[in-house]
Write a protein that binds this DNA or RNA. Structure first.
Length: 956
RNA sequence: GGGCGGUUAGCUCAGUGGUAGAGCACUACGUUGACAUCGUAGGGGUCACAAGUUCGAACCUUGUACCGCCCACCA
């Protein structure tokens, strides 16, 4: 006997364990079947399941369970991402909080990395357990990690990353370059453009006067509000504006537009840079916009991306004024830039204040403008990013993007919804070199080594970068080195163990002429570098494996749009380069999960909903179904607790339908022969079922999860429970054994088929019912999750549908009538059908039990003449008489008829108008015209009957 | 500055040319041994605005307004 209700808290862990222990998530291995694979977007190993994960993984699991039931050889590849900065951050924080009073630098690189591994093994990957609670049917035996397994240093994940780096380097697609990067002074590492957030913050423009050198003056025009020059003023200075005054310490020039008449005479002259006293030239460059600010712009090539380009054009050597922690430089660099002692070592913001007050004191501060400015912030550190000159490794993304663009253009990979292709193209066509080196310790170490060149060695010079060896292993590197140096020179590998890009900038003393010290690049690769290989590295690449053959390329990638650039684009590039194929056929981009007010959920806003709490409260099925029902294409999803509650109720509804089936001995018949089903109500539900099956399949195939889930909701609740189960009650309680047997069989069958259709969305409650409806069935036939997907062949019986729909309409209208006329809910009415005609009379008689039961009728009789002293109404097209005694509100009956007559008149009139329009009749498709004609005929008949009924009410 | 999307019932949203829909909320009534995590019935919308295309527009076109988001080096 089924319990009163489903208990997710008890059932879900039990069912999940059973699936897992029975290897249900593994591919079927049926090589004759089509392979279907999805790689999970690997959550950070530090991650905690949030709503985005819940949506993302629910949708993947729906696809996976659907295709598995359709008989494909299915793999859902799980795993986690080592998440360089995030993980290093977590462990460092933990160390700080533990009171050990030891920093990562105190520990040294090796010990720290060990510590991170320990953390990963002990407390990392909690999210995996959370995915299991959602019901994710990943093949956990294949769980992967972007850093591989430290106990097997030869693991393929490590080899894959190294191989890719080395080969790209060989092809010239990875190179070293010294240029401006986005430098994060908090983490002291370079980050990529994508890891920088532009945020609007309150700020200022300081308008600074730079005195002209050599006594030069010029006439500056003063304009009025309309832009007309009203007077001119003689100036011995030029005004520049900046939001970062401290950068003036590194200015190498002032640029004006070559055609700006105001400054034409100043080009080639110099300004005397305050504070540092350096003479810097006024140059002409089109970058200077005459309409912005004063039209003159200070140029700081070492600390601004635009200025870098301008400086390069003008032949200026960039002057670095900041160190890795964004303090003003000291020592040699400070000497070069002429930075006064009192500025050296200052924090950048202290330096800013000091610079501003120096200008103020010198009466060179023309104006301070208060406004909002866009500033770059590190997306993880939340500190202001500085453009900074460093040596880094870059991937030539521009070259690699070309095939990736073509593949989408050719339709080898499709975006769903399609409009995301635009976003993809826009990004790819304007792609910048991808900075892949990070000054961190946690990650894939760059397989590059630096050594002195032979010339440097001979002259005992400091070397940097010297000779660069890029190799898949230290042995390979040493082989290269021996070949390079010859047998005379001894080679030894040293590990400086110190991170930070600048270590190479200072120069390292060379070894003696007879021996060369070689040091490995201390930096690691951007986490996304290894994530980019995920679709093939997880299948064993670079080894040739059976899994790689079978499951690459994958079928579908399911992800949110915010990851298109970080991940999708890079997987495309890497797959095409190394596998010669796209990594996935479809990219389904789903919505973001927002709160009820449409705000992004975040911990800091305090509006984050915890998916696990919802699972605790309502069950995983309810949350999953909610996600499914809301996952249309494009839109954001606003999640509310109420919605989840409603879908929990849906699960309860299903559960109770199963209880009803159990009580009425509607068992599990297995396959049934549709042709032998006779009763219209049973034939009708079978046709409704087949339609539902088709809609669910189509919905999932087209990634219209909301349509699939909506069809299920409607079928199970509104069709199956509200009507079918009610309509068969008389049959199940009746004396006709044949009909009873047939109905039990069909009811049981439809319920089982519904469980299959619902399973991808609600795996737990359906699996539980599958087993509970026929004890031991799981053992005999296997789990529900391994059953075959229901047929989507249409089964229709129009006659049965028409008949049952007539019954449904009749009941609905009678119920509505009773309500409107104030008939007490408990009282049973006698119903008389007037001149109904043979077909209707037959229907009424064959469904008498159901009509009486569901419309609360005393009895049903037929007559040829309108009865005296009765209230008549029109139901469908049949005039029906009800005894006056039962009707509480005759006035309401009149009103009801009047209202309906008025509406009918209006409808008829407007449709007649349409039909009398010659253009409509001649140009509209004939079936539409006919539809309108028929409508008028029906309405007119009905109107006649309504009028007669209304007349009958006059005297009452 | 460029791009994308949105505007339909009180709320959250479906609905891509043929009589405006669902869930929740609301109102009334609850009887039938699957279900009160429920049932039955009901109220509620010039589909943001304007012009156009069409026999016919929530839907196609153009424009306007407002709201989101993404990308971009404005001193």
């Amino acid at each position: 006997m089924l319990d009163q209700r489903f208990d997710p808290a008890e059932a879900e862990p039990r069912l999940y364990k059973a699936w897992e222990e029975n290897g249900c998530f593994k591919p079927s291995g049926d090589t004759s079947a089509q392979a279907y694979s999805i790689v999970i977007p690997p959550p950070n190993v530090t991650g905690v399941l949030h709503m985005g994960h819940a949506l993302n993984n629910t949708l993947q699991d729906v696809l996976i369970r659907f295709e598995r039931m359709r008989g494909k050889n299915v793999l859902w590849q799980p795993g986690t991402d080592h998440a360089g900065i995030a993980t290093q951050m977590v462990v460092e924080r933990q160390m700080a909080e533990s009171g050990e009073n030891i920093t990562r630098r105190d520990m040294g690189r090796e010990a720290f990395v060990d510590r991170v591994w320990e953390w990963k093994e002990e407390s990392g990957g909690a999210i995996v357990g959370q995915l299991k609670r959602l019901g994710a049917s990943c093949d956990w035996s294949k769980e992967a990690f972007t850093m591989g397994d430290r106990n097997h240093p030869d693991n393929n994940m490590m080899r894959a990353v190294t191989k890719v780096f080395v080969e790209l380097h060989k092809k010239g697609l990875i190179y070293r370059d010294k240029r401006l990067v986005n430098w994060d002074p908090h983490f002291q590492t370079a980050i990529s453009d994508l890891e920088v957030d532009q945020r609007e913050v309150p700020g200022h423009y300081w308008h600074l006067r730079y005195p002209l050198a050599d006594g030069v003056t010029y006439m500056h025009p003063i304009k009025d509000e309309d832009g007309n020059t009203v007077e001119t003023e003689m100036r011995d200075y030029i005004v520049v504006a900046t939001s970062r005054p401290e950068t003036m310490l590194g200015d190498t020039g002032v640029a004006v537009h070559p055609e700006d008449p105001r400054y034409a005479g100043l080009i080639g002259k110099f300004v005397e840079l305050p504070i540092v006293g350096r003479r810097i030239p006024i140059i002409a460059d089109e970058y200077a916009d005459p309409d912005k600010g004063s039209g003159a712009v200070k140029i700081t090539p070492a600390h601004d991306f635009n200025d870098f380009e301008v400086g390069k054009r003008a032949g200026h050597t960039p002057l670095n004024i900041l160190n890795a922690t964004a303090h003003i430089v000291d020592g040699e660099e400070a000497d070069t830039a002429g930075i006064p002692a009192e500025y050296r070592g200052l924090d950048r913001f202290d330096a800013r204040r000091k610079v501003v007050s120096a200008f103020e004191e010198a009466e060179l501060l023309q104006e301070i403008e208060n406004l909002k400015i866009e500033q770059p912030f590190g997306d993880r550190s939340n500190v202001v990013i500085e453009p900074w000159m460093t040596d880094q490794w870059y991937v030539d993304a521009k070259t690699m993007a070309k095939p990736a663009i073509a593949a989408v253009k050719e339709g080898k990979t499709k975006f769903v919804p399609e409009n995301w292709e635009k976003t993809y193209f826009n990004w790819m066509e304007n792609i910048q070199p991808w900075c892949v080196s990070r000054q961190l310790w946690w990650g894939h170490r760059i397989p590059a080594w630096y050594a002195p060149t032979i010339e440097q060695l001979e002259s005992d010079q400091a070397y940097f970068p010297g000779k660069v060896f890029v190799a898949e292993s230290e042995e390979d590197m040493l082989a290269q080195a021996r070949e390079y140096y010859g047998s005379e020179i001894e080679v030894s590998v040293v590990d400086t163990g110190i991170g930070g890009a600048k270590i190479w900038g200072g120069g390292t003393s060379a070894g003696k002429a007879s021996s060369a010290n070689i040091a490995r690049d201390p930096d690691v690769l951007d986490t996304w570098f290894s994530s980019a290989l995920w679709p093939f590295s997880t299948q064993g690449w670079p080894d040739k494996t059976a899994d790689l053959d079978t499951f690459f390329p994958t079928a579908t990638l399911v992800t949110a749009f915010d990851i298109i650039f970080f991940w999708v684009a890079r997987m495309m590039m890497m797959s095409l380069e190394f596998m010669g194929e796209v990594p996935f056929k479809d990219v389904y981009i789903h919505a973001l999960v927002l709160d009820e007010k449409g705000q992004k959920m975040s911990k800091s806003k305090g509006n984050a909903m915890d998916p696990l709490e919802l699972v605790d409260e309502y069950g995983a099925d309810a949350l999953r179904f909610t996600m499914g029902r809301m996952a249309g294409q494009g839109r954001n999803i606003r999640l509310s607790k109420q919605a989840v509650e409603g879908n929990r109720n849906f699960a309860t509804k299903l559960w109770n339908a199963a209880r009803f089936a159990e009580m009425n001995e509607c068992g599990a018949p297995g396959e049934i022969d549709y042709d032998r089903v006779e009763s219209p109500v049973n034939r009708w539900i079978l046709s409704e079922l087949s339609q539902c099956a088709a809609e669910v399949s189509k919905g999932i195939e087209d990634y219209k999860f909301n349509e699939a889930a909506g069809a299920l909701y409607k079928f199970i609740w509104n069709t199956l429970c509200d009507w079918y189960l009610e309509l068969i009650k008389p049959l199940l309680a009746g004396m006709d054994d044949a009909a009873k047997q047939e109905t039990r069989m069909v009811c049981g069958y439809v319920l089982d088929e519904s469980l299959k259709l619902l399973h991808p969305f609600m795996p737990f409650v359906t699996e539980e019912l599958w087993e509970r409806r026929a004890e031991g069935r799981a053992e005999a036939k296997g789990f529900l999750m391994h059953q075959s997907w229901p047929s989507t062949e249409p089964f229709t019986d129009e006659a049965a549908a028409e008949e049952i729909n007539w019954v449904i309409d009749m009941i609905t209208e009678l119920r509505s009538l009773r309500n409107d006329l104030g008939v007490p809910a408990g009282s049973k009415l006698p119903l008389t059908l007037v001149n109904a005609g043979a077909e209707i009379e037959n229907r009424a008689m064959s469904h008498e039990d159901v009509l009486k039961r569901l419309a609360r009728l005393e009895d049903i009789s037929m007559t040829d003449t309108t009865p005296e002293g009765a209230v008549t109404a029109v139901i469908g097209e049949t005039m029906s008489a009800l005894s006056v005694a039962d009707i509480v509100d005759i006035d309401e009956a009149r009103k009801r008829l009047d209202k309906e007559l008025a509406q009918l008149d209006k409808d008829i009139k407007s449709t007649e108008g349409k039909l009398s329009n010659e253009k409509f009749v001649s140009r509209a498709p004939p079936e539409i015209v006919e539809e309108n004609r028929e409508r008028i005929r029906d309405w007119t008949t009905r109107r006649e009957k309504l009028k007669a009924a209304r007349k009958g009410l006059e005297g009452l």
